[in-house]
Simulated assay, not measured.
Amino acid sequence: MNVEKKRRQEQQTVKTIIGIYCHGHHHRREPGEKLCPECQALAAYAVERIEKCPRMEVKSFCSVCPIHCYAPAKREEIQKVMRYGGPRMLLHHPLMTLHHMFLTWQTKRLEEKTNCDM
Rank of each mutant, 00 (worst) to 15 (best):
M1V: 04
M1Q: 07
M1R: 07
N2Q: 09
E4P: 09
R7S: 04
Q9Y: 03
Q9H: 05
Q9E: 09
T13M: 13
V14D: 06
T16F: 09
T16Q: 10
I18F: 05
G19F: 00
I20L: 12
Y21P: 03
C22M: 01
C22V: 01
H23G: 11
H23Y: 07
R28H: 14
R29P: 01
E30H: 15
E30K: 14
G32W: 12
E33H: 13
E33L: 11
K34Y: 08
L35F: 06
C36S: 11
E38T: 08
L42I: 15
A43V: 02
A44E: 09
A44M: 02
Y45R: 10
Y45S: 11
Y45D: 06
A46K: 06
V47A: 15
V47L: 03
R49Y: 13
K52C: 15
K52E: 15
K52V: 13
C53H: 10
R55W: 04
R55Y: 04
V58F: 01
V58M: 03
K59S: 00
S60I: 13
F61Q: 04
S63K: 01
S63D: 03
C65V: 12
P66H: 05
P66Y: 11
I67C: 08
I67N: 06
H68W: 15
H68I: 14
C69Q: 04
C69L: 15
Y70F: 14
A71N: 13
A73T: 10
A73F: 11
R75E: 12
R75Y: 12
R75D: 10
E76M: 01
E76I: 01
I78P: 07
I78V: 15
I78E: 00
I78D: 01
Q79I: 12
K80I: 14
V81T: 06
V81S: 02
M82S: 01
R83L: 13
G85E: 08
G86R: 09
G86Q: 07
P87Y: 12
P87G: 12
R88Y: 02
R88A: 12
M89Y: 08
M89I: 11
M89E: 03
L90N: 02
L90Y: 13
L90T: 14
L90R: 12
L90H: 09
L91G: 04
H92M: 08
H92G: 01
H92S: 04
H93E: 05
H93L: 00
P94M: 09
P94F: 11
L95C: 05
L95I: 03
M96T: 05
M96E: 11
M96K: 08
M96L: 15
L98D: 01
H99R: 02
H99S: 00
H100Y: 12
M101L: 14
M101A: 11
M101N: 05
M101P: 03
M101T: 11
M101Q: 04
F102S: 05
T104N: 08
T107N: 10
R109Q: 10
R109L: 05
L110S: 05
E111K: 12
E112M: 15
E112G: 15
E112D: 14
K113H: 05
T114D: 10
C116G: 00
M118V: 11
